[in-house]
Amino acid sequence: MTTNTQQPDVRDAPQDLGDAHLRVQLLSQPRYLSGARDLVSAVAKRFGFGETECGQIALAVDEALCNVIRHGYDRRPDGKIWISIWPVNDGSDGDANRAGGMQIVIDDEARKVDPDRIQGRELDDIRPGGLGVYIIRQVMDDVRYEHRNGEGMRLILVKNRGSASEHDGSQK
């Protein structure tokens, strides 16, 4: 994995994400999930998120990467995935009262699907699989799937600091 803090220079990376504060490229292999989770969680912590929120953000990214590996690339091990991260309203505009948060964009060059058809399954239907999108939508504040220009899909995830996501870690 490579990291960039100013002008990213990741070969073949999406060109319109040049202002990302941090970007990593990984191949569509499950063995890199753990490292991606650790990275995202560590950055979330630096952005001021609590331990539970850091875990939830890492879980959402893990689920998103799993979906790209399994469904986008059909477990092909040579597909490229990019994770780009920005702080949101981190006080750099002088407004220290804004809560702030984190935006994560996950890009791939995998098969395109209709964003409207990417839905979490009904929970009453108890069966293995199909939980990933549901979990992502539960723990993040904003979840948007888009077609990338050219090939592949883009997933935009936003988590606001101090916001009550649909699941706050407590039993409902």
């Binding site: 979990i135 699941h167 039993q171």
Partner: peptide, 10 residues
């Protein structure tokens, strides 16, 4: 456990 709670599988 929280993953099971999110999925209501607890």
């Amino acid at each position: 456990k929280s993953v099971f709670e999110i999925a209501r599988l607890d």
